[in-house]
Design a protein around this nucleic acid. Structure first.
Lengths: 176, 176
DNA sequence: CAGAAAGTTGAACGTTTGTTCCACTACTCT
DNA sequence: AGAGTAGTGGAACAAACGTTCAACTTTCTG
């Protein structure tokens, strides 16, 4: 049987709404997300956002967990060398800034809502899986260091470049 | 001349409003802060919050920068030993959780509003001052590690204890 | 004691909010 | 062809919002 054309278009619109929500989060933060602001950003009527996501919270959480999943998947492709990790961090503050902002918006929501914590820690548990054989203490130090470099990169006056980050990443990874 | 009783009471109420705002931020995040929610929390009429802070943004920024200043001042008292720093982090996720949450809410606002960045990085520049003579790369690694430990402590299933944190802090500080 | 200054407060304004309803079109399946 | 399903979108609702206003009390100053 051929794919249902209605569902195909519906899924596309659902994804467009998610992407529009992420852009609103990047620009105005979680506080800027409303049915109307997202609908305006996506170029769809207000009611369509409530059609696909029953409540605003559903829409917001779907966007943030999707974004966190994207970030984790992207991180999985990074070789665990200082140069590659430094490049990942630099990109997270530049090209993929919205995704990184969304990650830490999710962190803050998860701090108050335990059910969101697994999603927020997605990239952490993923790296913990990859780094089998590492010393547990060293692993925790590296994970903390990367999280700190990422969030500090977001509030730097000038977006850090990979070359500047590399020695710091290198020192952090030395412990393993 | 004796102190003006009106101003004394006014300053007290201003501080109560700040403290109430911080409690709202702790419970519901920045999104939960409104003139009415803060006034309800503080037990004052709605108009008094607008009397002391012209706009809601003024109130929010005043609260977050005040809280960040408190956190920086508190950090300044910590001896730079692994045990003391680990204790500081454990308390930041427990006893002083609201203050820590406010710090990272400020981070996220600062990511989009450059004028807030100096306030957000207050504790970082303070530690950079204290750690004269450290290797710059090692300092950046430690600062990132501490930031990461703090924010990860907020989304841990169980608040980390100082004893668990100490070896990680110790390893991070070894680089200096 | 009079007047200025500081703070207090309820009522009200226009706007935006989340969400629901309902009439409607587009498409699939039997 | 006709029934059922998926998606569309304008209109409307009550609630909450930020902010302003004006009348009021308390306190200090000359």
């Amino acid at each position: 049987m051929p794919p249902d054309g209605r569902r195909v278009r519906g899924d596309r619109r659902r994804r467009e709404i998610l992407a529009a929500t992420l852009r609103v989060v990047e620009r105005d933060g979680v506080a800027g997300v409303s049915h109307r602001s997202v609908a305006r950003e996506a170029g769809v009527p207000t009611t369509s956002t409530t059609y696909y996501y029953a409540t605003l919270d559903d829409l917001l959480i779907a966007t943030l967990t999707w974004s966190a999943e994207e970030m984790a998947a992207s991180f999985r492709e990074v070789p665990l060398t200082p140069a590659a990790v430094a490049r990942f961090i630099a990109d997270a503050a530049g090209e993929h800034r919205g995704r990184t902002l969304a990650e830490y918006e999710l962190y803050l929501l998860a701090a108050r809502r335990p059910e969101l914590r697994a999603a927020a820690r997605r990239w952490i548990s993923l790296m913990a899986e990859v780094a089998t054989g590492w010393d547990p203490v060293a692993l925790r130090a590296v994970l903390a260091g990367l999280d700190g470099l990422l969030i500090q990169a977001l509030i730097a006056d000038f977006p850090p470049m990979a070359e500047d980050l590399e020695p710091v990443v290198s020192l952090l990874m030395l412990g393993g």
